[in-house]
Amino acid sequence: MTKNKQIQDKAKRLSLKILGLGAAVGAGALASDSTGYPATNPEKEWGEHFQSHYTKMSPEEVKEAVARLERRYKSQYDKEIKVATTPPKEHVLFGYALNITRCKGYRECVKACTEVNNQDKNPNMEYIRVLELDRGTFNLEEASHYYSAEKEVPAPGKFYLPIQCHQCENPPCVATCPVEATWKEPDGIVVVDYNWCIGCRMCMNACPYWARRFNWRNPNLPKDKINPDTHYLSNRPREKGVMEKCTFCLQRTRKGEMPACQAACPTGARVFGNLLDPKSEIRWVLENKTVFRLKEDLNTQPKFWYFSD
């Protein structure tokens, strides 16, 4: 066999092998099948992919990032959406107290929350979970999470326990985030930078109150359901693959308004305010009522109290 022929032979064998591998790849593509979920990924400007962490950006960079987001939201939802960056006020530390005697399980808070916070719709992502418990017990594992909305509440022999983010002073979710995409603001609110979160879900594992939600898909947010009054760190529209959570409606409360859940509560069970203001209603509750906190033994120091009349 001449040397030339040998080389030809070698090349032939090699090309056959490459063809074979190519066939394997092709067959793999066919076997991968489709899943039936729609893929609706927004078009983004390059700058959004490379922008820095919210707290690392200069004021100019934040301005740019906000303008970029507002442009994207406009083209994505065909609606003007304002993204505020209102900073925390000094000498403010937000706290919440909930009167479980007054709570009747209407779940108006749950509804109001989904109306202002631009969560994924249908099925609705909800930040607040109201548990229905038998009177005489306090075992969460015996609670009903999906008590029927058609049945009349309060049901006889039951009481209700709404749970949402407790904005812990010692938040385990913040400690566990590998990239500091979630942190505690000076006014005590634990926030997420949706443009920084890598979606590992470590924080979800860490939360004792099951208060964190993940965007398993690109949120389904119809134009007419959008609240255009948003904040960078709270209710601006999110995207797939990132974490989100209750921020005590930071976009409202930093402007001195009530959180939506408090505003919607028909029984006045909810008390929200500044823990550093001795004349606030929340301070009055903490000083004059017998209060307790859920899972206080875990030392996360929640700023969410329960009390009864």
Binding site: A24, G28, A29, Y37, A39, W216, N218
Partner: peptide, 25 residues
Amino acid sequence: IFFLVFLASMGLFTYIEQWRKGMVT
């Protein structure tokens, strides 16, 4: 090798689905 490349490429193409549609898949 053919068998492994088949499985690996199937995994890759399936992952592209997951990437496009999100982890809802």
